[in-house]
Amino acid sequence: MTDTNFEIRADSLSKRFNKTLLFKGLSFSIKTGNSLSLTGPNGSGKSTLMQILAYIQKPTRGSVTFFQNEKKLEENDINRYIGFTSPLLNPYEELTGYENIYFVLRNKKDEAKILPLMEEFLLIKHKDKSLKYYSSGMKQRLKFICAVINDPPILFFDEPGTNLDRKGKDLIYSYIESVKKEKIIVIATNEEEEIRLCREDIKIAQ
């Protein structure tokens, strides 16, 4: 992983929701090894900006481009390179935790990786429980596993610490800390601790 360099370039992004202009003319770029936090008051468009970066939404104006070793990536392939968690992202309630992770897993040969990760994030006891019976903190940890299980080079976290207790937060923060040198990490948050995890910060004003 370390010898491939990824880059995300955002070029004069603007987003308008019907009547409100969220942001205008944002340009920046992030490379592998760098981490970025997006901060701003509620409703300022942190999550929207992140979704635009992850190609989930389209900007009103401007563009986002992904590069792998200076080569432009095809839009259709981008999903393979990103991991994403967000309060908007819901795994299947009817499936068990294990089944959900297995569904996300791209290379089925890596099935052996599931259990250690569940162990690490303290979900091993609940692996055969349907997600309906998960607490919100457990779901948050499960979503985190789903984002990282394929070991993508680019990770987007929208408020990764929500609903987590101290222990859970420490777990995911130390995980982010351990991989951040070889990946691109973008966190949308207002938590001091999460901002400190990142090297750069973009403030979105209202």
């Binding site: 989930i56 994403f84 908007l88 992202l89 819901n90 795994p91 299947y92």
Partner: peptide, 14 residues
């Protein structure tokens, strides 16, 4: 309805 379409979209091809 269960708002899982984003999850599906991110994890499988069109």
């Amino acid at each position: 309805e269960e708002r899982t379409s984003l999850f599906l979209r991110l994890n499988s091809s069109l």
